[in-house]
Amino acid sequence: MSLNITVNGTSRTVNAEPLTPLLHVLREELDVLSPKAGCQNGGCGTCTVLVDGEPRRSCLIPISAVEGAEIRTVEGLAPPGQLSTLQEAWIHHYAAQCGFCTSGFLMAATAYLENGGSDDHAEIATALGGHVCRCTGYVKILDAISAAARGDSFDLTTTAAGLRTTIKGVDQ
């Protein structure tokens, strides 16, 4: 079947079987690669995207159930070459180790912050409790989300110069 979804502000027409998980349409048909295929069973959170502003497991959602919906992924968090405050906090606090869980955490945390979430670690842990970091870097992740909730500002040229350079390299 053919249907329309909006991905990061752009209307896209996709052609897929109606029960195909949104994750596979994003990755395989639309080349939106930030949502990761982890457990594909709803248990890890690496595939989380925002569906009409709500964090959802894209591996569990049939594409036809989100017809006409507004999907947001990491690619849409900031204009090309820029980072959202949360992403800057992630770098500043070294919240990514291998990075596989990062996309899902970023989207769930973005929804948490947009809904007025506080910098309290226990509240963050409750809201994001379904996300797994197999490097077990949870403390840094909580620090980063807390910092973004407080609206901290980050000078990435001094705090994480190496990472910043790497990111610029990718941009160019």
Binding site: E17, L19, T20, V25, E29, S64
Partner: peptide, 18 residues
Amino acid sequence: APTQKRVESMSNGPEVLT
């Protein structure tokens, strides 16, 4: 650049009623 791909998984799936 991405090419237009058709997701083939589940192409032999059930008849879907909505």
